[in-house]
Amino acid sequence: MHTQIETNSIPPLRERSETRSGAVVAGAFAGSGVAAVAIGFFHVLAEAFPAVKSFLTLHTGIGPYSGKVLLGYVSGALVAVLFPVFVRQVSESPWPWVKVMLVGLVLGTLMVFAPVTHWLAEVLK
């Protein structure tokens, strides 16, 4: 009886492996979108606050671009790595995560488009 209850509570190995794989894939999609938004966000912050621009200048030759891109990638990588750790159950369909990535890419692109960047920087100041 005891053995029966334990067997029922544990999903089959293949199912567990697919759930884990689904969470890894969802995390990668979310991380890609977050990386783009984070790069855009750091770009806007650097435009709004000279101190942030100076902080993001990790390489004098490259300028603040170095910090914006590096920290943007780190943000995306953190989301991609931590997502499967905290989220175990994900939808079977990858389409919601594709939308997350595409929305992130479009938002990130808008945030690095100078007229939008300057408007957002003015709002933040």
Partner: peptide, 28 residues
């Protein structure tokens, strides 16, 4: 001020998407 700013950042998005595509093909 407009085009180069856009180019340098949109170019930085691509390696992330390409890496995602590699992860997908090996995962699926």
């Amino acid at each position: 001020s407009v085009l180069m700013e856009l180019k340098e950042f949109t170019g930085a998005f691509v390696p992330v998407i390409a890496l995602l595509a590699v992860l997908l093909v090996f995962s699926w």
